[in-house]
Design a binder for these strands. Sequence first.
DNA 1: CGGATCGAC
DNA 2: CTATGTCGATCCG
Length: 837
Amino acid sequence: MKKVGNSSCNDGVLLRMGLNDNKAGMQGLDKEKINKIIMEATKGSRFYENELKKDQQVNQRIEKMMQLKEKITTQQLLKAQLQVDKLVIELEQSRNLSSTIVHIDMDAFYAAVEMRDNPELKEKPIAVGSMSMLSTSNYHARRFGVRAAMPGFIAKKLCPHLTIVPLNFEKYGKVSKEVREILTEYDPNFTPMGLDEAYLNITEHLEERLNWPEDKRRFFFNTERTTEKGGYSSSPVLFEDNTPLMDDHPEQRDQSVANSVVFGTSAEEVVKEIRFRIEQKTQLTASAGIAPNTMLAKMCSDRNKPNGQCRIAPERQAVLDFLKDLPIRKVPGIGKVTEKMLKALGIVTCSELYQQRALLSLLFSEASWRNFLDISLGLGSTHLEKTFNEINTAEDQYSLCRELCRDLAQELQKEGLKGKTVTLKLKNVNFEVKTRASTVLSSVSTEEEIFAVAKDLLGTEIDSVAPHPLRIRLMGVRVSGFLSEEEKKYQQKSITSFLKSGKETSFLRLHAGKSNQECFTKNSESSPRGSFFDKKRAARQLNSENPPNETVGKQLFHDKKSSAHFVEETKKVTDLQNSNVCKIFTCPVCFEEQSSNNLEELNRHIDECLSGSLVKDTMEIPKNDNSRESTLNFLPQIKSENVDECQNKVDQLAGADQSASTSDSCTSSSTEKFTQITSDKPHRERQPSNLSDIARNVCMKQCLLPKRISEDNEDHFEKTEHTEETSSSCFFEAKGDSVLVCPVCNSEQKTNSLVSFNRHVDVCLNKGLIQELTEKKDFPTKTYNMENSNRVGGLSRGQQCTNPSQGTKRSGLTTSQSVSKKAKSSNSKHTIDMFFK
DNA sequence: CGGATCGAC
DNA sequence: CTATGTCGATCCG
């Protein structure tokens, strides 16, 4: 790829000004002219200087990224490709097309409201905001380059006739409420995003609607509106551009009532109906997107803006077609910086994003590239935040708290972690956040232990407002100050640093719903934003925070195990390899000191210990899914067969092994430590299944987890009821022989034994690895680079977390229920090869 | 924890 | 005449 320097530093500034995609209209200005005016107005200002500086920083990041890229060998790329493609298979399997998500977006909302209320503004270019900053502009003004987030005084230079109307949030809130009243009829759980946007899940509505009589789908034109000059009611021209209501629907022609429209039962019709009603009620137009998930719906609603709608059919191919040439910048969550970085790699469209998936996995943090992958596959959340009424009885609050503690305890025990500080986080109905922490002398990890502390904290808060009830909308429980039990006993430098990095927090929390109908924008607590961040944070630690929605939870788990561990552990091992400091290790199995500077040797020793200890000892592998996970990791590219079949085999295999290991009781930190030490070896994770459970457990941490795992993390309120059945839905029926293609040598392996197949893959893989190891001592394996990228050029981990729609979107994995449902659907048999053909 | 960063609105 | 916002959230030091 080329040097990055060729993009001028003005780009950033102009981008911020929102000019790069300005569509110049007849009466407006063309792009160059606009840029010129802006430059003149902005040049030399402090603001501009700062923009330049920031831009330079981005350029430097890009520079570093490119340097990193140079070092990547084709071998590494190949390996990365395999890894990523394995994930792709899983993701494909989890694709859920069964929901109908709608994104409603009011057109130029503030400006539209102002124009409605002051008809004199109607034909003029206007913007809403102040001389310092504009919030939005009408379409007329946009032709002059006047856009949201532009200072008013610059806008005035672009468009001297521009009328700037001050913000009037009260009014917008009122209108917004009117709109929400309509939306709630289609999805009582809809998620407002600010004042002018909302997500709806109309899946249920569609079902019900099928049986609705025509009259229930009939809506009347609003005739009683006093025609304010220019007359709204005289010409109810709806959907002028793309949706002639009367044309293609016979039932609409038959209408007996003159002044009414009957809408059909399809998703499109529902959305037309919504938009019709919004317009009738508020005189404002909205655009809408209909798609199988929130990310797609949002991008869709952008397509036919203003006053239009667009649908992505719930078919895999339709999704891919939509994405094919879509510029990544259109994706919510990909902002200016990410766009530029990807552009430096030659990535502009979503299909390019997919094509470069292997490279991206080497250059970006796990969270980042997985997000990219979700995007390029068109995966997103189908889950709109569950809402429930505010919890205000002490009893409910305690039981909720206990639930959280239980889930948290599970997570902790799986990780073999104990913490000394328990933090309770509460957000009341007024959005005030309180955290109350308590540090205890002995570490806690079980539900009871944690709850004992959390309960006190909660009790204190309840008492503090007594006799009034504590009215909360969010509760979280966190455990921090981790200390592995044996940490002190077996302190080793690398491990210590590892634990340190992971010692931050583990936070389980839950949103207590959006019972509020407040219209005020940016602090809607129940927006996916929070949960998304939670997820991401959780993802990068070995701790976890349980987000309020199940899909997020799933992903969280996914990330947590596979990436956080993978990365951290690999990093640590890399440290091991590179530093001369620690040459004495304690074997985590036999607890004997092993003096060696040869990691190979050490690992061999541990292996021996393991196979020995398996027989006599039943270590605490968290039993349920882990072994399956690990095995799943061996899954190669699967040909012409439902992935579930493999899954099934995996399950069978795992089941056998499972019985050997009694469950849990957890936290013999030996396992933990073992994990840490050994997990570095990339090929170890592919040890064939004759390895012990413990080894599998180790593997698991590096692996991409199958989505089922995340059942634990489902919405806590539903969890108790569903846990049983969802778990059982994890097992799939056996279906017979599989044809598997070795992802390394590409040859077909006909077998019904995953074990033997894996053995084959191992052989292939190890060949490559050995080669690589010998040719390069300091091999930048995939994870190694990922770690690096966090420090240097790559996106900082937090970076990709920033956006609300992303939040839901990125939890691309589906709920376990939908998995089982979906398992039968035809998509799962597509393989990645079909992508973007 | 504060400062820097990112992205949405 | 000037004049470039606010928020949530992460991460690093």
